[in-house]
Design a binder for these strands. Structure first.
Lengths: 336, 336
DNA sequence: TACAAATTCGGAATCGTTTCCGAAAATCGG
DNA sequence: CCGATTTTCGGAAACGATTCCGAATTTGTA
């Protein structure tokens, strides 16, 4: 895999390497004649500039690191596609790493990306991550960074988030309008902003419609199918059965449905249930799952643009972008 | 973001840069005393070797390109995790690109990765890809390459594939044992080996049990949910309804189920159906979908190792690795 | 025609490493 | 104690590009 370099062309044409470089970059101080001559033989010889050498000189790698909790569900991959569309067009490559929802792995990933000298970072926190000191330090040292989806308010870098409060409210309001009176919330981990915001939305709806709830109605569950199943099963074993469930995401909703079904409950007749974040397969489960759909592509798009602004040293005036979605009502929450 | 370089350390300690380099790489021609001294101040000053400079000198990027058709389904992400486990441990980074099932995008991706001077390529063909001349040229020029899952036999580089023939046979045999007599196959694109092998498995099972079938029973469908739905709907509209369906993957099976359900067919009573490649959500759809489960992690593991052998210039003796899976029988194909 | 200005290009430094070559210093054997 | 090894280190080249500086050539102007 011998590569043609700028020297090979220079030797071939009996010119200096600086001339060839000038031709390639079309600078002002070269005659049109020699430029064309160089370009022609460069093409003939199959020359491609060596990006590594360019990076060394420019002190820039044109690579940005992406750290996400997982990419087994389709949620994060869709966001990443949104990012790629923007960043590849600007000549950047993505280095994608997963924390597997583990704080230490997340830190290792960030360190590794730093050592690899990425030009910037796009991060979605693991569900364990509480300590964000390092991120703030890194940001203040000047590392371009954007956080998205899984965020913590104490983070100083720009963020792209979803209007969790508003859409949780709509989700619970929808359940109430279906006639649910005894509604519980399967919540995410409380150190993540999105979990707290979704709890706030739940509380606002319950208060607004004067429905009773207490701390036992808001159950820290997690994000996975089996976590939803375990929590729901435990409730049913205790003889507790709500008539409405607002789950913090689709997998936990699915888990709850599994537990409910095997306890002989009918959905939506006995229990209405709605998830969040619209998984690709929410439509094909039994029963088809209602959910709040998030604009995943847009999340990636905005995160990428906020990063680009930093990479181009433009001052970002707006620090946080909050996006809206829509309510997708299917059988699991629809009565009558 | 000023970085400490080897020169900073040299200046600090009044030694030459070569001495510092020797200390960092622990070569033979340096005294233990100065080595420790250098290492100590390097640590104190927070020195990290610049990987870009290293790459320029070693003429190696320690990055490998991965090209996959999509990463919205969980199948390819799982394979990638298998690759990452192996390659990250050896110091390699992955550059992941999607072809979106489009031949031209696939080529653009490969070109871009080549220009980025990746050390090797891991490729799964798009469903459109028929012309593989460029890949063979590239491989013969010495580019380390491994193909996986979506493969074409004409490709000369090492491959990691699934024993599609054997497990298709088992899948169809299972349908037959459930009493199905009129079985169709929703097939993938025929220029991909896996599609042809799955067709062969179907044919072998049908022949073995003396069940009739003709060309109309093998329908080129695609890989997506709506493709399965459209093809099935068209059949039903023509008044054709099999009592057994072997789908080339889980999404097409799901699509077929949607069409069957809205036509009032009961599964598995009227129609047994089995998919392939075990999606994460196959268990939670209605009815739970039988499928052939593939060892996704292992596919990634082996592909990565075959690539490593080439990167380390070891001669690969075994060119193709063929993996086995298991039959996961759920409600969609289980009678009585 | 002569001198100033503009154009065009080569040489060398630079980016941060590794590594080859040779010289100084230390160690060794007799 | 002296010559021969061995150890240890500095200087410089190399990787492949960009860019600054200055020199040669061409062009322009009076």
């Amino acid at each position: 895999m011998k590569h043609i370099t700028i020297k090979d062309i220079a030797r071939e044409l009996n010119v200096s390497v600086s001339t060839v470089s000038r031709a390639m970059n079309d600078t002002f101080d070269i005659s049109a004649k020699t430029r064309d001559k160089v370009l022609k033989t460069a093409k003939e010889m199959g020359y491609h500039p060596n990006p590594v050498a360019k990076r060394l000189h420019q002190q820039k790698t044109f690579q940005v690191g992406v750290v996400i909790p997982e990419f087994i569900n389709d949620f994060f991959p869709q966001i990443i596609m949104g990012m790629q569309n923007v960043l590849q067009a600007e000549g950047y490559q993505l280095l994608i790493m997963q924390s597997n929802e583990c704080f230490e792995t997340e830190m290792e990933n960030v360190l590794k990306l730093e050592e690899n000298m990425v030009d910037g970072l796009l991060i979605s926190l693991s569900r364990e991550t509480q300590n964000i000191d390092y991120y703030n330090k890194l940001y203040e040292k000047g590392m371009p960074m954007v956080f998205f989806n899984r965020v913590n308010e104490m983070i100083k870098a720009p963020k792209v988030i979803f209007n969790d409060f508003k859409w949780s409210y709509f989700a619970v309001e929808h359940l109430i309008k279906q006639g649910c009176k005894n509604i519980i919330h399967l919540a995410g981990y409380k150190h993540l902003s999105l979990s707290r915001e979704r709890i706030r939305g739940y509380e606002k709806a319950m208060n607004k419609f004067h429905l009773p709830y207490d701390d036992d109605c808001i159950i820290e569950t997690g994000f996975m199918i089996d976590e939803g199943e375990i929590v729901m099963k435990r409730l049913l074993d205790k003889g507790i059965c709500p008539d409405g469930i607002f789950a913090t995401n689709d997998p936990t909703a699915i888990g709850a449905i599994k537990a409910l079904k095997s306890a002989g409950k009918r959905i939506p007749e006995d229990v209405c249930i709605i998830g969040f974040s619209e998984a690709m397969w929410s439509e094909v489960v039994d029963p088809p799952l209602s959910s709040v759909s998030q604009p995943t592509n847009l999340i990636g798009y905005h995160a990428a643009h906020l990063l680009l602004e930093q990479l181009n040293e433009k001052q970002t005036e707006d620090n946080t972008i909050k996006l809206d979605g829509k309510l997708v009502v299917r059988t699991s929450s629809q009565r009558g």
